[in-house]
Structures are given as C-alpha cells and as structure tokens.
Design a binder for these strands. Structure first.
Lengths: 190, 190
DNA sequence: TTATAATTAGGACCAGGTACTAATTATATT
DNA sequence: AATATAATTAGTACCTGGTCCTAATTATAA
C-alpha cells in the first residue's frame, strides 16, 4: 500500500510540477504535503537537480515571470498543478486564524472554500457556478497542516459538470466531495 | 566632511530607491555601496520599515497573488437571532469582493461559510465540527444582496446533530442544505 | 533470506538575517 | 573646552532554511 520505498516516482514527478507552479514551497512544507521526511525531499531535489528555495526565488524573480499569471486570485489556496478541463491541485496552509480558538481545529468552510474554488477553476469556461454539492469532512485539520486538494472532472452533460474532490494532509484524507457545477452561457439575463 | 554622523538622510533616501529597483541587494552589499557597516544598514532598514532580503523577494514574487480569504470571526455574517439548541438567523451582505469579477455573482463558498458557521453556532456545546453536508445552491446571488440564513436543529442522536439550513434573498431561496455536525467531547486526544 | 533501494536520523556547518547590549565616534550646544 | 546628543560600530545569542556528510533503519525484490 505504497507507504515507504514506493511512490518515489509519483512523488518526484509531482514535486517537480508543484515547484514549477510555486517556487516558494519549503522542503518542510513539501514533506508535509507528501507525508515524508524533510530528508527525503532533499534527496528528491538533489536527484532532480532542483535548487533550494532562495535560488528558486531568485531565478523566478529574474525571469520576471510573474509566477501566478493564471487568474488564480480567484482561488483559495495556492495552485500547484492544473490541467483545465481535467484536474487541478491546490495547497492551503492552515493558519491559526482558520481554526477554532478552543482546539485549533480548522473550520469546515475553509476546507470547503479551497475545494469549491478549485472545482470551479478546472472548468474550461468563463463563468462557472456551484450547484449541488455533497461533502464529507473525514478528519480534523489542525493549525499548521498543509492541505492538498485534488479536483478531477467526472461526467459532463451539457452545462452540467461533476467534479470529484479529495483533500489530504499527508496520507490522510480530510475531505471528500462531489460538486455539481454549471457553466453559464454568455447570452445573459440583465 | 560628511564621513560619519552625516549623510544619513542621503543614504536612507538612496537605500530606499535602490531596493525598490533591486530587492535582491544584501545588507552586506549595501554596506559596501555606502561605505558603512552592516549594522548601519540594518538600522536604516529598521527605521524605514524595509524588510529583509527573503521577505522582499517573496513580496516581489507575490505582487499579483492576492488570496481572497474568508472572515476569521467565529460567525460569517451578522447574527440576527439565536436560540442555542434550536435555531439561528444571520445576515450576510454580499460585497463585490465576494463575487466573481466577470459577472458579479457571489462565489459559493461565502454562502456556504455563512450557513456552516451558523449551523455550528446554534449547537449547545463548546466544540462543534462539521461532518457531512448536502447543499444545493438554488439561485445566483449578486453583489449588494442581503442573504438571510436560517438554521434549525433537526434530529439529535448522541453527539451527532442534523441541522437544516435555508438562505434567502428576499423571498428567493438561494441555498438549501443539511449539515451533520458533531459535538466533540472534552476528553480529547492531544 | 539476503541484497538493494528508499527512507529517516543526526550532526557539523553556512548565509543572511533578528534582536539586543554596549561601546565608540561625530556633531552640536551651552 | 566640556558635554549632551545623534550616529555609527561591535559583539553576542539566536533563528530559518538550507548543504553535506555518515550511519541506521525500513521496504521491496531476487
């Protein structure tokens, strides 16, 4: 069940793509996202010839590439990977403000917002709205957790699209859901 | 002849401009450029509220990355009425920031956040978490709309409570849902 | 069962800082 | 000229996010 010793290829592939979209990720954060140790991430970077954070920032600045050129301010969390019309991955780091003071557990609507905005973002259309949803919060999320959300398009009929969403902290699934979203036509009332 | 104790104003003015054009300059480099010590540069930055190298790089990279976050208060919206253990009513005024720029339609997760936080608020317990939900977004909500959300407790079995939620703009139902929420006991694993 | 691959642990070290205390030097004031 | 004040420099302890290295542990395949 792919705990250790495996998943290396998968991890390295995703690591590469994540860092392409977001050079600001620290080793520690990446370790949290994949549920491995910092050392493993460093081995990965070393094998893949991916430089450290500060170097990545520098080159990102110098190539003046305005990292987030995708209209991603609509998104809650940071976009790690996306293939519009197919799937998307985003990262949300849980800050203390997102949690209940009493027990530091993240409040559901933050996780929901990440999932919802990602589900909408992967649809290949100008205007997309959420219709029905079915969401299950499966596990508590604490302050400091790194929530990786993956959304994938399921069926598509007319302007109605089904998106499956799973959010994880390391190996643990914390949210699972199905979003039915609608593409709005440009004709438009008012 | 302006060696020490003078030229401070001049130096700070130029320091500011240099860093605006090139955020990558290190304190050590700046010290060399002005012929002063590193400590002097650090005092300057401190007085001018100029952050350190890494922070400057980050902000330079993130200029177009404004992540829209949800309110961090316990309740999203204003509480209009509540009877803990029974029902609650809240009001959320839709501001332009809550909408998609393209069509001024409110994004689903804001409505969800209002509903979710209200559903949790009416439970008579210290710590409440969202479990399963089933939500239907029935109608578009526009900027300026006043969304009134009403949550009502349904069945209650053990630590598991069902809450029915309806949000309306005027007479129009815009959101309908059922939230299964859980009361957390105080015993608690870490 | 054993060899090999993958992962984890730990420590010494580095750059570029923060934050603080104290000393020194310049400039102005009386 | 003596002194108060502003500016600068020195030095230390500590921090983050790394590198680079060695060694141990765990997983997977032969």
């Amino acid at each position: 069940m792919t705990k250790r010793g495996s998943g290396k290829v998968f991890r390295q592939k995703n690591l590469t793509r994540y860092l392409q979209n977001n050079p600001l990720l620290k080793d520690e954060e990446l370790a949290g996202m994949f549920g491995v140790s910092i050392q493993t991430i460093r081995l990965d970077r070393s094998e893949l010839n991916i430089p450290e954070l500060r170097e990545r920032m520098k080159t990102a600045l110098q190539t003046n590439n305005s990292v987030r050129s995708l209209g991603s301010d609509e998104l809650v969390g940071d976009l790690l990977d996306i293939k519009v019309g197919s799937f998307g991955v985003s990262l949300l780091k849980i800050t203390p403000e997102m949690t209940l003071r009493k027990n530091q557990v993240a409040r559901g609507h933050h996780l929901f917002a990440q999932a919802n905005s990602l589900a909408v973002a992967i649809i290949d259309a100008e205007i997309v709205l959420t219709g029905d949803i079915r969401v299950r919060f499966k596990h508590q999320v604490k302050s400091g957790d790194l929530v990786v959300c993956r959304a994938e398009i399921g069926s598509q009929k007319g302007n109605r699209t089904t998106v499956r969403v799973i959010s994880q902290v390391g190996e643990t699934v914390v949210l699972e859901g199905i979003f039915i979203v609608f593409v709005l036509e440009e004709e438009e009332n008012q």
